[in-house]
């Protein structure tokens, strides 16, 4: 436990200093933890695992958007667990209500292959489809298509700064969509 949290803290410190690779590593490590927490929480309240990945993604978004609330001189474990608990409770309160999206909006983002057996990699494309057009294209380009900021800027004939702003706003909007608020 201690060693794992020490690892998170070390990676997060490097990330806050601008190390993107360290940031990816800590987010991946946190994903494993968050997924286990969400599964355990859903099991305790007799909920199926269908929404586990939504909670994981919501918590990751919160960790990202609120990383300024971690005080680097304090242990990171309680901070992460508090965010995980908050997002789990939010999800349980919503009672697993699915976010309603017209099917036409979803169709183009649905995966072509049949649903995989791995529950934990369930596609959460429906939240992306609620973003407005350009934001969705940019978030999709960087997340799903794995393009860099520069490549995305070239593709949409935008400045890199404008892509960064749109990406950030898109991620903040995703976080709101998960909470059923207007983005």
């Amino acid at each position: 436990m201690e060693a794992r949290e020490q690892e998170w803290a070390t990676l997060m410190l490097a990330a806050l200093a601008g190390d993107e690779a360290a940031y990816r590593s800590v987010l991946q490590a946190l994903t494993v933890f968050l997924r286990a927490e969400a599964r355990r929480g859903f099991a305790r309240y007799g909920r199926g695992g269908a929404d586990v990945e939504d909670v994981v993604q919501e918590a990751l978004l919160a960790i990202h958007l609120k990383r300024g609330t971690w005080r680097t001189d304090e242990p990171i474990g309680p901070w992460v667990r508090a965010i995980a608990r908050n997002k789990l409770i939010d999800s349980l309160r919503r009672g697993g209500k699915r976010i309603n999206v017209p099917i036409d909006d979803v169709i183009e983002t649905l995966p072509a292959e049949p649903p995989s057996e791995q529950l934990n990699e369930r596609d959460a494309g429906e939240v992306l489809s609620k973003l407005n057009g350009r934001q969705r294209e940019i978030v999709q380009s960087i997340s799903i298509n794995g393009a860099s900021i520069r490549e995305t800027a070239a593709k949409f004939a935008m400045s890199e700064g404008a892509v960064r702003v749109a990406l950030h706003r898109g991620l903040a909007a995703l976080s709101k969509i998960y909470r059923n608020e207007e983005p």
Binding site: A15, G18, E20, Y23, R24, L27, Q28, T31, E53, V56, Q57, L60, L61, H64, L65, K66, R67, G68, T69, N120, E121, D123, A124, G125, V127, L128, V139, Q140, I142, S143, I144, G146, S148, I149, R164, L167, H168, G170, L171
Partner: peptide, 22 residues
């Protein structure tokens, strides 16, 4: 969007600094 894809987007947004509470 798979979680791995989301992490990709989050790390691309690392340069946009959040405001600390103080």
């Amino acid at each position: 969007m798979k979680t791995e894809n989301l992490i990709q987007a989050l790390s691309a947004d690392l340069a946009t600094r959040p405001t600390p509470v103080p």
